[in-house]
């Protein structure tokens, strides 16, 4: 067991990591916007546009509908808080998880449920029709994604023999690729789920106000909107980080030296950039699908996850 002081150190390291994620998340949303503009052959905003938007909105007055209640008010804080909590636990920079007792696959998946729970509840709390439908769709999508995410992560957990992301990360970083085909299939299925969770076409359009992901935000304005936008960017980064923490161990710090941590951080940011570029390119080459047909598309992802499991059983 770890001593008291090393526990505090890792806790601080985790919190530092969470703050780093929060600081860079608008940058990655900016990257997405730039790529989209380029693929649309538009001039588009600069990479830092998200920061400007957020800081401008933060200075604006927040006006809420008269029927909205407490949930509407606290949602932005819960949103960011939950994602920071997840971000603090994941082994993003180092091979071992900073807060091992939180970096469990099941815990992380259910932490995302807190995000979804309050996000949708705030939509209903605003009393708006569009926000309500957005809330309903957000949760429906969650139901479709959860089995894919759970099964693909389960396959990896079974291969390593532990549901702890820290253990999985160190095991993959060390050498063990016991079942390469199964791991690869799980990677594809998990990427599929992560892509949906990031709020991308064909499942979602993160920028459109009446769509799923921003649907519950229809009534937010001013400083509240700034925080929610930040929270959504943060969620995209954290979800991508979860994927990286499990499947892409390259470049992570093996020890707690200053150099290796710095190298790990830089490597992490580069990997994150790669994920965002790939996701944006895929997103902009696809057309928006009809929502009620989403279930048919997600079967594909679930099918891949099942295949991964079958490959695991056969030991491939």
């Amino acid at each position: 067991m770890m001593t008291q002081s090393s526990f505090v150190v890792t806790l601080l390291a985790g919190l530092l990591q969470a703050v780093l994620l929060m600081a860079v998340s608008p940058l990655f949303s900016g990257v997405s916007r730039v790529i989209r503009a380029k693929m649309h052959s538009r001039q588009g905003p600069g990479v830092l546009q998200e920061y400007r938007d957020i800081f401008k909105l933060l200075t604006r007055q927040e006006v809420a509908p008269s029927c909205s209640g407490n949930i509407y008010r606290v949602m932005p804080f819960v949103l960011i808080g939950t994602m920071l909590a997840v971000g603090a636990t994941l082994p993003l920079v180092s091979q071992a998880a900073p807060i091992a007792a939180g970096a469990d696959l099941i815990t992380v998946v259910y932490m995302f449920a807190i995000f979804r729970f309050f996000f949708s509840l705030a939509g209903l709390d605003s009393g708006s029709t569009f926000a309500g439908i957005g809330a309903s769709r957000e949760l429906t999508l969650g139901i479709l994604v959860e089995p894919i995410l759970m099964l693909s992560l389960l396959v990896v957990a079974l291969i390593v023999g532990s549901t702890n992301i820290g253990n999985i990360s160190s095991s993959f970083a060390a050498e063990h690729w016991n079942a390469p085909t199964a791991t690869a299939m799980a990677l594809i299925a998990c990427a599929f789920a992560v892509f949906i969770e990031m709020g991308k076409i064909p499942f979602d359009v993160a920028e459109a106000e009446q769509e799923l992901q921003e649907g519950p935000l229809a009534e937010y304005s001013g400083s509240g909107l700034a925080l929610v936008k930040w929270g959504l960017s943060l969620k995209q980064v954290v979800v991508a980080g979860l994927f990286l923490a499990i499947f892409v161990p390259f470049g992570k710090a093996a020890d707690i030296g200053l150099v290796s941590i710095v190298v790990g951080t830089v490597a992490f940011l580069l990997k994150l950039l790669l994920i965002f570029v790939i996701a944006s390119v895929i997103e902009n080459t696809l057309a928006r699908g009809r929502f009620l047909l989403t279930g048919r598309v997600t079967w594909l992802g679930f099918g891949i996850a099942v295949l991964a499991f079958v490959f695991y059983l056969t030991g491939l």
Binding site: T59, P65, C67, A218, E219
Partner: peptide, 11 residues
């Protein structure tokens, strides 16, 4: 920044 207010109906 002006204070948070609750006013009017949803859009």
């Amino acid at each position: 920044r002006l204070n948070f207010i609750q006013r009017g109906t949803p859009w």
